[in-house]
Amino acid sequence: MNPQERKQDDNQIDTYRRRLLGGGAALAGAATLGPGVFFTSVARAKPDDQPVSSEVRWGFLIDTNKCADNCNDCVTACEKENGWGSGSADEQHSRPDQKAQWIRKVTVRDKRTDHSMSLPMMCQHCAHPPCVDVCPTGASMKRADGIVLVDKHICIGCRYCMMACPYKARSFVHEDLEHQREYAPRGKGTVESCNLCVHRVDKDEIPACAEACEEKAILFGNLNDANSEIARRLASEPSTEIRGDLRLDLGVRYQGI
């Protein structure tokens, strides 16, 4: 895209933003008529021709107390959904330390007390993502609704985002692939990571890992909607961010750590 086109696009975004704000005002008006109208309107799936909105922020609340040590269901579900690891016949040449992992189970043990626990680890969908800051081309990006993605069309494969991510959430594709899912493109020489199953979220479905967890340890929802289950639980129960000292304002929060 040349700069002029980009500028046009920005203008377009402004137009959309105005339209959205206008809509927001109308909704706010509706909210005065009846409680709950505002929130249900925003949380409903957006039409295909509408852009995602920053009034929504998607996230996870993960309860490690419910997460079993030897259970790998969320990982397997992600592999199957997005076509990596055991979900794909590709990556035959790559060594284990070169294969992609969008989500992984991490065992954490306190050396002093010997207490240990297990938890799923993936892209934390930061509000201030270091990967987005460092990306030279803007391929590493955050959508308005808080989902952090790689635009593989303009990723040059420099791997600076992998250096910058505090969570080791990203993988580099080390070889040619040919068995991609229709909705989950991935390919050699580009970086990838958990995209919060953006193709499902846009259809008003929940991410594959959250759906697969029988213990309901992974709760998905809109952090900005005070009426959503995730927001209500976050308001009433304690939760923490991993490496919260970095102040990245994560979209994924944990309980029991």
Partner: peptide
């Protein structure tokens, strides 16, 4: 097609040949 599937529907399972 280095990233996108080149067939309708893509590859649904672990990678049929």
């Amino acid at each position: 097609f280095q990233c996108h599937t080149s067939v309708p529907g893509g590859h649904k399972t672990t990678g049929e040949k």
